[in-house]
Protein backbone atom coordinates (compact mmCIF):
# COMPACT_ATOMS: atom_id res chain seq x y z
CA UNK A 1 0.00 0.00 0.00
CA UNK A 2 1.82 3.06 -1.20
CA UNK A 3 0.92 6.50 -0.01
CA UNK A 4 -1.06 8.65 -2.45
CA UNK A 5 -1.53 12.40 -2.15
CA UNK A 6 -4.80 13.04 -0.34
CA UNK A 7 -7.76 13.46 -2.68
CA UNK A 8 -9.98 16.35 -1.72
CA UNK A 9 -13.45 14.96 -1.04
CA UNK A 10 -16.39 17.31 -1.42
CA UNK A 11 -20.02 16.67 -0.53
CA UNK A 12 -22.32 18.57 -2.90
CA UNK A 13 -25.69 18.78 -1.20
CA UNK A 14 -29.03 20.09 -2.34
CA UNK A 15 -31.34 20.65 0.62
CA UNK A 16 -34.73 22.27 0.35
CA UNK A 17 -37.79 21.13 -1.54
CA UNK A 18 -37.04 22.64 -4.94
CA UNK A 19 -35.58 20.60 -7.75
CA UNK A 20 -33.23 23.15 -9.28
CA UNK A 21 -30.14 21.02 -9.50
CA UNK A 22 -28.50 22.74 -12.47
CA UNK A 23 -26.01 24.69 -10.35
CA UNK A 24 -25.23 21.76 -8.06
CA UNK A 25 -24.57 19.53 -11.04
CA UNK A 26 -22.41 22.06 -12.84
CA UNK A 27 -20.27 22.57 -9.75
CA UNK A 28 -20.06 18.80 -9.14
CA UNK A 29 -18.72 18.31 -12.64
CA UNK A 30 -16.28 21.17 -12.38
CA UNK A 31 -14.89 19.78 -9.10
CA UNK A 32 -14.55 16.34 -10.63
CA UNK A 33 -12.79 17.80 -13.65
CA UNK A 34 -10.34 19.46 -11.31
CA UNK A 35 -9.48 16.07 -9.81
CA UNK A 36 -11.61 16.06 -6.66
CA UNK A 37 -13.88 13.29 -5.47
CA UNK A 38 -17.43 14.59 -5.28
CA UNK A 39 -20.11 12.91 -3.24
CA UNK A 40 -23.44 14.03 -4.70
CA UNK A 41 -26.40 13.64 -2.38
CA UNK A 42 -29.29 14.21 -4.75
CA UNK A 43 -32.32 16.37 -4.13
CA UNK A 44 -34.27 17.19 -0.98
CA UNK A 45 -31.75 16.25 1.68
CA UNK A 46 -32.53 17.18 5.24
CA UNK A 47 -29.80 18.92 7.27
CA UNK A 48 -29.49 15.74 9.31
CA UNK A 49 -28.92 13.60 6.20
CA UNK A 50 -26.35 16.07 4.92
CA UNK A 51 -24.38 16.05 8.16
CA UNK A 52 -24.46 12.24 8.31
CA UNK A 53 -23.09 12.17 4.79
CA UNK A 54 -20.32 14.63 5.59
CA UNK A 55 -19.26 12.51 8.55
CA UNK A 56 -19.43 9.12 6.84
CA UNK A 57 -17.64 10.34 3.74
CA UNK A 58 -15.01 12.17 5.80
CA UNK A 59 -15.44 15.17 3.51
CA UNK A 60 -12.98 18.02 3.40
CA UNK A 61 -15.61 20.38 2.10
CA UNK A 62 -19.39 20.71 2.02
CA UNK A 63 -21.00 22.70 -0.80
CA UNK A 64 -24.64 23.49 -0.17
CA UNK A 65 -26.81 24.79 -3.00
CA UNK A 66 -30.00 26.55 -1.95
CA UNK A 67 -32.39 28.32 -4.30
CA UNK A 68 -35.59 28.01 -2.34
CA UNK A 69 -35.09 31.03 -0.09
CA UNK A 70 -34.83 28.81 2.97
CA UNK A 71 -31.10 29.45 3.49
CA UNK A 72 -31.65 31.28 6.78
CA UNK A 73 -33.35 28.18 8.11
CA UNK A 74 -31.21 25.47 6.50
CA UNK A 75 -27.69 26.80 7.07
CA UNK A 76 -28.12 27.39 10.82
CA UNK A 77 -29.58 23.89 11.08
CA UNK A 78 -26.65 22.33 9.23
CA UNK A 79 -24.06 24.31 11.19
CA UNK A 80 -25.73 23.38 14.48
CA UNK A 81 -25.69 19.67 13.62
CA UNK A 82 -22.05 19.83 12.54
CA UNK A 83 -21.18 21.45 15.84
CA UNK A 84 -23.18 18.91 17.82
CA UNK A 85 -21.27 16.15 16.08
CA UNK A 86 -17.97 17.91 16.77
CA UNK A 87 -17.19 18.32 13.09
CA UNK A 88 -15.01 21.41 13.02
CA UNK A 89 -12.57 20.81 10.19
CA UNK A 90 -14.97 20.84 7.23
CA UNK A 91 -15.04 23.83 4.91
CA UNK A 92 -18.66 24.86 4.37
CA UNK A 93 -19.61 26.80 1.22
CA UNK A 94 -22.95 28.04 -0.02
CA UNK A 95 -24.31 28.62 -3.49
CA UNK A 96 -27.58 29.48 -5.16
CA UNK A 97 -29.85 32.47 -4.73
CA UNK A 98 -28.80 34.16 -1.52
CA UNK A 99 -29.31 37.91 -1.11
CA UNK A 100 -26.08 39.82 -0.33
CA UNK A 101 -27.52 41.17 2.88
CA UNK A 102 -27.94 37.65 4.26
CA UNK A 103 -24.31 36.76 3.61
CA UNK A 104 -22.73 38.35 6.72
CA UNK A 105 -25.14 36.45 8.97
CA UNK A 106 -24.30 33.17 7.29
CA UNK A 107 -20.58 33.83 7.57
CA UNK A 108 -21.00 34.57 11.22
CA UNK A 109 -22.38 31.10 11.89
CA UNK A 110 -19.45 29.46 10.09
CA UNK A 111 -20.24 29.35 6.38
CA UNK A 112 -16.89 30.25 4.82
CA UNK A 113 -18.06 31.76 1.57
CA UNK A 114 -21.15 32.18 -0.57
CA UNK A 115 -20.85 31.76 -4.33
CA UNK A 116 -23.84 33.36 -6.01
CA UNK A 117 -25.07 33.16 -9.59
CA UNK A 118 -22.38 34.12 -12.05
CA UNK A 119 -19.45 32.73 -10.05
CA UNK A 120 -16.94 31.06 -12.31
CA UNK A 121 -16.49 27.42 -11.34
CA UNK A 122 -12.71 27.81 -11.32
CA UNK A 123 -13.04 30.44 -8.60
CA UNK A 124 -14.88 27.90 -6.46
CA UNK A 125 -12.29 25.22 -7.25
CA UNK A 126 -9.43 27.53 -6.33
CA UNK A 127 -11.16 28.63 -3.16
CA UNK A 128 -11.60 25.03 -2.04
CA UNK A 129 -7.98 24.15 -2.81
CA UNK A 130 -6.76 27.12 -0.81
CA UNK A 131 -9.06 26.75 2.15
CA UNK A 132 -9.53 23.07 3.00
CA UNK A 133 -7.74 21.97 6.13
CA UNK A 134 -4.54 20.15 5.21
CA UNK A 135 -4.57 16.43 6.01
CA UNK A 136 -1.61 15.08 7.89
Amino acid sequence: MTEQPHKIRVVVAKPGLDGHDRGAKVIARALRDSGMEVIYTGLRQTPKQIVHTVIQEDADCLCVSILSGAHNHLFPEIMKLLRENEVSDVLVLGGGIIPPEDVPGLKQIGVSEIFGPGTATFDTVRYIREHVQPRA
Binding site: K7, A28, R29, L31, R32, D33, S34, G35, M36, E37, V38, I39, Y40, T41, G42, Q45, T46, K48, Q49, H52, T53, Q56, E57
Partner: peptide, 27 residues
Amino acid sequence: TGGAILADRVRMKHLQEDPDVFIRSMA
Protein backbone atom coordinates in the same frame (compact mmCIF):
# COMPACT_ATOMS: atom_id res chain seq x y z
CA THR B 1 -8.38 14.03 -14.13
CA GLY B 2 -8.48 11.45 -11.34
CA GLY B 3 -11.67 13.09 -10.09
CA ALA B 4 -14.96 11.29 -9.58
CA ILE B 5 -18.63 11.93 -8.96
CA LEU B 6 -19.94 9.43 -6.44
CA ALA B 7 -23.72 9.53 -6.58
CA ASP B 8 -24.93 6.21 -5.18
CA ARG B 9 -26.22 7.82 -2.02
CA VAL B 10 -28.94 9.48 -4.07
CA ARG B 11 -30.79 6.17 -4.11
CA MET B 12 -30.18 5.38 -0.45
CA LYS B 13 -32.33 8.01 1.18
CA HIS B 14 -33.99 5.68 3.64
CA LEU B 15 -30.75 4.67 5.27
CA GLN B 16 -29.16 8.06 5.63
CA GLU B 17 -30.48 8.88 9.07
CA ASP B 18 -30.13 5.40 10.55
CA PRO B 19 -27.36 5.42 13.19
CA ASP B 20 -26.68 1.72 12.58
CA VAL B 21 -25.96 2.17 8.90
CA PHE B 22 -22.71 3.55 7.56
CA ILE B 23 -22.33 4.37 3.89
CA ARG B 24 -19.04 5.15 2.27
CA SER B 25 -18.53 6.07 -1.37
CA MET B 26 -15.21 5.15 -2.93
CA ALA B 27 -13.71 6.14 -6.24
